[in-house]
Design a protein around this nucleic acid. Sequence first.
RNA 1: GGCCUUAUCGUCUAAUGGUUAGGACAUCACCCUUUCACGGUGGUAAUCCGGGUUCGACUCCCGGUAAGGUCACCA
Length: 452
Amino acid sequence: MKSNPDQKIITRIAPSPTGLMHIGTARTALFNYLFTRQNGGKIILRVEDTDKERSTPEYEKNIIDGLEWLGLDYDEFFRQSERTDLYKKYLKELVAGGFAYVSKEEIKKEGERPEVIRFKNPNKKVTFQDLIHGEITMDTTDLGDFVIAKDLDTPIFHLANVVDDKEMGVTHIIRGDDHTSNTPRQILILEAIGGSIPVYAHIPLILSPDKAKLSKRHGAWPVTEYRDQGYLKEATINFIALLGWSPQTTTTDGKEGTNEEIFSIEELLKRFELTKVQKKGAVFNVEKLNWINKEYIKKLSPEILDQEFSKHTAPHIKSLSGFKTEILEKLKPILIERIQTFGQLHEILENGEYDYFFQTPEVSSELLKTPEHLEKVIDLLETLTEDNFTVEKIKETIWDFATENGRGKVLWPMRVALTGQEKSPDPFTVASILGKQETLLRLNNAKKNNPS
RNA sequence: GGCCUUAUCGUCUAAUGGUUAGGACAUCACCCUUUCACGGUGGUAAUCCGGGUUCGACUCCCGGUAAGGUCACCA
């Protein structure tokens, strides 16, 4: 388990740029990051782009952007497509040494070649240590002589991956569980090229609510999409860390269990234990992510909060008729209280839920129910100056009257007159945001149209 | 189907032979409140099944079952 003290830990994140970076890749990267930084090791980002047909620079950029957003830095960067000479050298040696051979093939699919390079399988049982699962043994016999390169210049995954792990001195391979069954054949290659066997840690996959492998259909967005949807990076990190890992119980009696849920990256660095990662796949639960994100929103500094708020409201300003900056500014705390992600700001602004703050609403007589108290409310509010038109003052002015005559009977028509809605923030708040002039205008309108 | 892996509330998990099986999200109820949201309090809810081992199994062993991964000239 513990590695050689004199041997520096070297890990790698090895994504292939054949699609947008998904949340599973992010979690694998996080676990690599946490484990390596805890041990003062070195992290390598290695772009595995040996599949020329499917790899693109755009996907590579997306992965790099995602890592950068999350703050998962690395020490070295490599691109496999730039290392073909190295793979070629190993391939030649393998063939020369009798570990691999050029094989004549029957072409079954379009694009297949008449000759490929296959690894000569010694057909034996391979056992390796896995930090999460323990010892795993597999018989490689049924693998046959598997393909390791299309030709001398075009290695495929297994070869390039293993050669690089050896060349880069990777000591710990932390990767997704989907690679578990690849491990024996990679060990076979590693033995053939004379590399030492690293320590493995296969972390379980992230599942969708129906327990299948997580896919886009289930709301599994690319990592950059979480960023764009207004999730905070701290919340995202926190959430994916908890997917499969939980902190060591701190209580001594074990009765309390652990009730800690919120972890900064610094705390994670202190507490994370790779060997405590769960063995089974974890279902991705957006609701919990949202809850965590909300917890982080609550803790946000006013500066960042303003920044995020502006960023996500700005696109709607021009399309909102009657828009006033002062009103949006006053609305801010109410909006913030309501959202779990900043992306929800877009929904609220788009569905017109709060349009009445900017435009005079239609008020239905029926909804007003008890308009007879409107007149007194107007009289009371008239006594307040424009400067005194605050939530506290308004409430103070109306409260006694409302209590005497039934709060519902007084406050309900007041809110409806101001908003035209059944649901809204409390009428004192609405009135203060609207200002004295607009409030009285709306109240008078409602009274005029609904004489009691 | 072969091989590998896994199995505690709906979900994420704690408890590594002795607990009334704990916490969190979600959910429900109540409180706060004119409504919504926020907040507060409380509740419902789990050890896959069958055999062992043991004074005693969530925990150890065996067998089922179920789920996931993998079996490419993808990674």
